[in-house]
Nucleic acid binder design. Structure first.
Lengths: 350, 350
DNA sequence: GAATAAACTTGGAGCGCTCCAAAAAAGTGT
DNA sequence: ACACTTTTTTGGAGCGCTCCAAGTTTATTC
């Protein structure tokens, strides 16, 4: 039994002269085993170079992986998540909950084609899914009969979800700028397909419905409401959709809409793009133009000027999501509150 | 067979009137199955709500998890890795290789006590271990008979390792500063236990050996050599050991060693601490004091002034480590080259 | 249409483990 | 020493799957 094959419980039992069950107990419930027997088994294990039960067997038997999977939204790879400040803080929160639970965090990849098979095959006890309303994905996850939580997307009362109150956040952002006296707004929204920024000119029908996901939609609604409250219509506000990572957003803003004094965004990242472009053009923020970010990432506090932004507890969201997966209780839909943190990127218009 | 239990391959086979093997083939090698049979099986699967083979069975049978584990060094948690710029870039590299290989990246936690059991139990095909010379950990990893790579620590010819040429990096840093005319050096080294900075005054024996790990040791050697080449001795240079994350390092430097004009560090992070403290005290860098970082994280380019730093390809290192795990070939010990990137934080002494 | 080749299907043999009911051993009290 | 309780140990029964050699069916050839 020693052909350099890795030894098994049974091998150890054979050498120690006890049954498999006893060897298993030595490793998992040592208190149930008489001390002398335990020592004999440990000696046998040592001799064979056996280092404890192989997790594969346990997994099959118990059905538990002691791990949760985090799947980035849409076409994002794990690398994109780690690269982005938002993704990073989210994963940080998830990892904190995993630390507490002693669980492993599996970052699972899914290109658009492989997402469902990944869901089917991942070695995890549950999932956290990035924002996505992809019904196939949800179906796959449900089929797997594993707990899962969807972020930033409400998929109905039977499905765990956590999202922020983006509508209120958007509303606060507009209200803040309006209170400062701004009347010329511009919105940076999120383009869900790849490609250059798409510019929606004012007055061409209701553009709010161009939102790809619930996340954008809610925020646009909030913007619309906030504008309505100061007798403006979102239909008169230009909307630029940019893909995450798009660097030219700022240039488009200043090239095409020099009259705008208040820029509303859907992410700190977009806001920072505008800040960078402003520096390049010698446009002073907030003197010439005010900018409001979204998410309140750590980065937003370190820009010059620091960003006024709709803030929420990103890491807390990740952590809560993981906890919900671990608990595996009744489905809940949680809406987290947001807060407008006013910093240096907003001021009254000139 | 329908007691709301999750269906298995056998259940599907029973309904479709074929054997388990055929059902397995439908999902894994559909080309081997006659189309009409395949359809029958697929219909049965659909009817039962069977969504493909359970990964647990496959894992036991095949022995492969299709995942690699990343274990942070020493007492770090996953969260610490994600928080730190260096850890983040490293994980980014690992994740890129995982993306390419279609594998999952498991971030496994190990507190000091649970590290070896984590190694024993993680559901992975191999490991990347943060820098550590902990022999128990290496033994555990070897026992598991899984490929693994150790970062920043050479554990001998039988063990995969990747590290940077820290000695040369350190040497370059000193040479650069010496060429600028500096004679009053100070070294920020790494404290491996928790607690406040430890100050090693000059002239009190050979302090280089206080290094906890190979990483520090090599760099101290490099510093020593560089100093020797300009007729200085490391024994005359103060060394301050700080824990990663320690914020007071900069204060200790300026409080205790105002005569130092050239600060050598072991991480960008330490260097940034010094920069921050300098701003607080109105000390101009590089006019009053020059600072050299280590690692060349993305952050180092964005500080004010941008940091002169010993740079290496952090993400590349992570990626290579993952590739070595996937390849599982002959053990290799790789030393990656470093480069001194001169930016704004160094200048001739006043 | 029989012989031969090709295509497809089958089901046994595990993979390594843990649970659990039952058996065995050890301990207790009279 | 015996009956009875408590502590330990045992080994069968899977967990769900894939491989593979062997068997069966279908297609091709003469």
């Amino acid at each position: 039994m020693n052909h350099s094959k890795t030894p098994t419980l049974a091998d150890v039992g054979r050498v120690a002269g006890v049954s498999r069950g006893t060897v298993s107990n030595v490793f998992n419930h040592p208190d149930l085993v008489r001390p002398d027997v335990r020592e004999r088994v440990e000696a046998a294990a040592q001799q064979l170079g056996y280092d404890g039960p192989d997790p594969r067997g346990r997994v099959l038997r118990d059905g538990k992986f002691n791990a949760i999977g985090f799947m980035p939204p849409g076409a994002y790879a794990i690398a994109d998540v780690i690269r982005s400040p938002y993704g990073r803080e989210l994963v940080l929160g998830v990892s904190l909950a995993c630390d507490e639970a002693g669980a492993t965090l599996s970052l699972v990849n899914g290109t658009d084609e492989t997402r469902t098979s990944t869901i089917r095959e991942a070695l995890v006890d549950g999932f956290i899914l990035g924002h996505s309303v992809d019904i196939d994905l949800i179906t796959s996850a449900q089929r797997r009969r594993l707990p899962f939580v969807i972020l930033e997307s409400d998929a109905g009362p039977d499905i765990n979800s956590i999202r922020i109150d983006g509508r209120s956040g958007a509303l606060m952002a507009v209200a803040h700028l309006a209170a400062l006296g701004h009347r010329h707004f511009l919105i940076l929204s999120i383009r869900r397909t790849s490609g250059p920024p798409i510019v929606h000119m004012p007055g061409k029908g209701k553009r709010a419905i161009t939102a790809g996901f619930q996340l954008d939609y809610e925020r646009l609604e909030g913007f619309a409401q906030g504008l309505a409250e100061v007798n403006l219509s979102i239909d008169d506000v230009p909307i630029i959709e940019t893909t995450p990572g798009e660097l030219s957003a700022g240039a488009v803003v200043f090239d095409r809409f020099p009259e705008a004094t208040a820029i509303l965004t859907m992410s700190d990242w977009q806001a920072i793009t505008v800040l960078d472009e402003a520096v390049r053009r010698g446009i002073n923020i907030p003197d010439h133009v005010s900018v409001v970010g979204f998410d309140g990432t750590a980065e937003s506090a370190r820009t010059t000027p620091p960003l006024t932004t709709v803030t929420h507890d990103i890491a807390g969201k990740g952590r809560l999501a993981a906890q919900m997966v671990f608990e595996n209780g009744q489905p809940r839909q949680i809406i987290m509150s947001v807060e407008l943190v006013v910093r240096g990127s907003t001021a009254p218009p000139r």
